[in-house]
């Protein structure tokens, strides 16, 4: 029943190459997924600005268009304003906890250095160990990096807060029950004459195509994220054969093989969206011309657009808050490890100090 516990052990160079390869893969996936999500945001933004699909659903002029009702339900189902308010309230505490761990870690280094310097001043050359200041440089550099990261996080918190402040009113409205939502949206003259008109049908068809393109993106994202591969064998082989690893060449070759087809599908998807959005904008112009807008209709449309945007903002803010919460929690784990490193080294220095003091007293 022998299992080789050193099976996964590889030469240092292979380990480093694997780490870099992993970074490259993460970057590529991040870029691909990023462009997919960007395309969806763009698409949602364009539709909201055109008041689609609400405008072609809204033929009574006073009931809540179906798509807006669906958006309302979606937001309510995800916890509405309360859930994001709670997460926003928690952020400063999470930040503070992280700050405290970092401050505490650097403080114990500072305190030990102070004592070490006092003893060096007292005993001069006889206190012949490396000064704490020199020894702690790497840890302090790490600490400075952490401060940097926390500063960036604080800025991110601000962005989220501002997004929330900008949109919370409309999000609150979107979360209201249907009857309240209905009364809050200005009425307009019904556009019944447009029902069944050619341009409405064309728009409907185009919107359905766009939906399919969006669904393709969701599937693509899942597939892209599911790709796994292991460069270990390739790197070990290269090292054995050449005595060196051309990591960049090997990794980019493998990434092309694994992700090439996906990259093309993403490009194709983005182009399809570009095309259909252009078509939708043209159709919408026709539609708007037919609609005979007046002040009432324009007011109604403005509110519907804002409600659609509020849904998109809610999704974005929720995502930001999940990211922020995870960030602070992950950082806490990392900072606790850092704190351990600091207390370990300080403990060793204290022990060494006691021994040195004993020697000096004896001599």
């Amino acid at each position: 029943k022998f299992t080789d516990i050193f099976e996964k052990m590889v030469p240092m160079l292979v380990q480093q190459s694997l780490s870099i390869a992993s970074s490259r893969k993460a970057d590529l996936v991040s870029r691909l997924v990023g462009s997919l999500r960007e395309a969806t945001n763009l698409c949602n933004g364009v539709l909201a600005s055109l008041n689609l699909p609400a405008a072609i659903e809204d033929l009574s002029g006073d009931s809540v268009p179906q798509s807006i009702l669906e958006k309302s339900r979606a937001v309510i189902q995800q916890g509405g304003l309360n859930s994001i308010e709670q997460l926003i309230k928690d952020l400063p505490e999470l930040l503070q906890r992280n700050r405290e761990i970092l401050d505490e870690s650097l403080k114990i280094l500072n305190d030990e250095e102070t004592t070490d310097n006092e003893l060096r001043a007292k005993f001069n050359q006889r206190w012949n160990r490396t000064p704490s200041g020199d020894l702690y440089k790497p840890l302090r550099a790490e600490g400075a990096n952490f401060r940097n990261i926390l500063d960036k996080a604080v800025q991110a918190d601000q962005v989220v807060k501002e997004r929330y402040n900008t949109h919370c009113e409309m999000i609150a409205l979107l979360c209201k029950p249907e009857s309240e939502l209905c009364s809050a949206i200005p009425s307009a003259n019904p556009a019944k004459t447009l029902q069944g008109s050619e341009v409405v049908n064309v728009l409907k068809a185009q919107l359905m195509q766009l939906d399919e393109i969006k669904r393709d993106r969701e599937a693509l994202e899942v597939e892209v994220k599911a790709v796994t591969f292991d460069m270990t064998t390739k790197f070990l082989t290269a090292l054995a054969q050449d005595g060196a690893i051309n990591e960049e060449a090997l990794t980019t070759g493998e990434l092309d093989t694994r992700y090439g087809a996906y990259t093309q599908r993403v490009q194709k998807n983005l182009r399809s969206q570009e095309d259909i959005l252009a078509q939708i904008q043209t159709s919408h112009q026709e539609f708007a011309a037919l609609k005979q807008s007046n002040a009432d209709a324009n007011n109604r449309e403005e509110v519907l657009k804002k409600l659609a945007s509020a849904h998109d903002s809610y999704i974005e803010i929720s995502s930001n808050l999940r990211e922020g919460t995870k960030f602070y929690n992950d950082l806490t784990e990392i900072l606790l490890k850092f704190q351990n490193k600091c207390s370990d080294i300080v403990f060793a220095r204290k022990t060494e100090r006691e021994e040195l003091l004993k020697e000096l007293q004896q001599s």
Binding site: S23, A26, I149, A153, A156, N320, E323, G324, I334
Partner: peptide, 16 residues
């Protein structure tokens, strides 16, 4: 993404 990446920091560095 809005927040800084912690990926680099998660990798355990070899302690000398």
């Amino acid at each position: 993404s809005l927040y800084p990446s912690l990926e680099d920091l998660k990798v355990d560095k070899v302690m000398r």
